[in-house]
């Protein structure tokens, strides 16, 4: 970019750096706890899911795939919702950390979506009789996966990182309409994927012996996400400072 733009970017970027020190302090405080919780919850969840819980009366031991598949689905949706919120906050309030956080967590969301899709196929083949169907639930989750990948590609395609993040924010907000579609797909349309088991009021559809490992794994994945979000946002902040310093060197 031209020299005046470069100076303007530098000024604005330097101004932003008042905030990150606070984030760094918070991150340093929380990280050991979230990391420790992740390890503990994963250990407990794996034990409960693989050893200490019963097989299902109709699905047998394949039900243990649920303890990976469902929490990763929840995280895939949760992370995207966070990205949408961050994009909105970045757009309206121009908070410096919002866009960086959004960019930081996108690969984690993509990872969880991939795990959800793959474990879903591994579960569907023995139980339904197929690896994949184009029903509303599966198709909309696949679209979510493409949204994550599209976002990552988009923000990396720009020379100017700030413009890249702005474009990415727009993509995330446009795609947010997919979230209610995913959630309600099994209610709105005839699908092969069965309706929700956990959100039913009244008679619960999940036996407590299976609900427990599910919730522990969900908590484990959440702790894992917090850990990675902190690590990756910190890395994004460092990256921005590196870019600023490199530009300062280049301009001198």
């Amino acid at each position: 970019m031209a020299l005046p733009d470069r100076m303007a970017y530098l000024t604005v970027a330097m101004h932003r750096f008042a905030n990150p020190a606070r984030f760094q302090r918070i991150a340093t405080a929380i990280l050991p706890w979230s990391a420790g919780l992740t390890v503990l919850l994963l250990a407990a969840g794996l034990y409960l899911g693989l050893v200490a819980s019963p097989a299902d009366y109709q699905q047998g031991d394949t039900v243990r795939i649920m303890y990976i598949h469902v929490p990763s689905a929840w995280m895939a949706l949760f992370i995207y919702a966070n990205m949408a919120l961050a994009s909105a906050v970045g757009f309206v309030w121009r908070h410096p950390l919002a866009d960086l956080f959004c960019r930081a967590v996108a690969p984690v969301g993509a990872g969880f979506t991939a795990v959800c899709l793959i474990t879903g196929s591994l579960w569907g083949e023995p139980m339904w009789g197929t690896w994949w169907v184009w029903d509303a639930r599966l198709t909309s989750v696949l679209i979510l996966f493409f949204l994550y990948l599209g976002y990552i590609a988009l923000v990396n395609a720009f020379d100017d990182p700030v413009r890249g993040l702005k474009a990415g924010a727009i993509l995330v907000l446009v795609g947010v309409v997919n979230l209610p579609i995913i959630k309600f797909s099994v209610d709105w349309w005839n699908t092969l994927h069965q309706p929700a088991s956990v959100s039913r009021l009244g008679r619960p559809a999940l036996d407590p012996a299976m609900l427990t490992p599910l919730m522990v794994m969900a908590a484990a994945f959440m702790a894992y996400f917090v850990t990675l979000a902190l690590l990756r946002t910190r890395a994004e902040l460092l990256n921005r400072r590196i870019q600023v310093l490199q530009m300062a060197r280049g301009a001198s």
Binding site: L50, D61, T62, R64, I65, I68, V115, T119, L122, W123
Partner: peptide, 8 residues
């Protein structure tokens, strides 16, 4: 199926 899921 189960072990592949946990492995991935």
């Amino acid at each position: 199926y189960v072990w592949s899921a946990y492995a991935i």
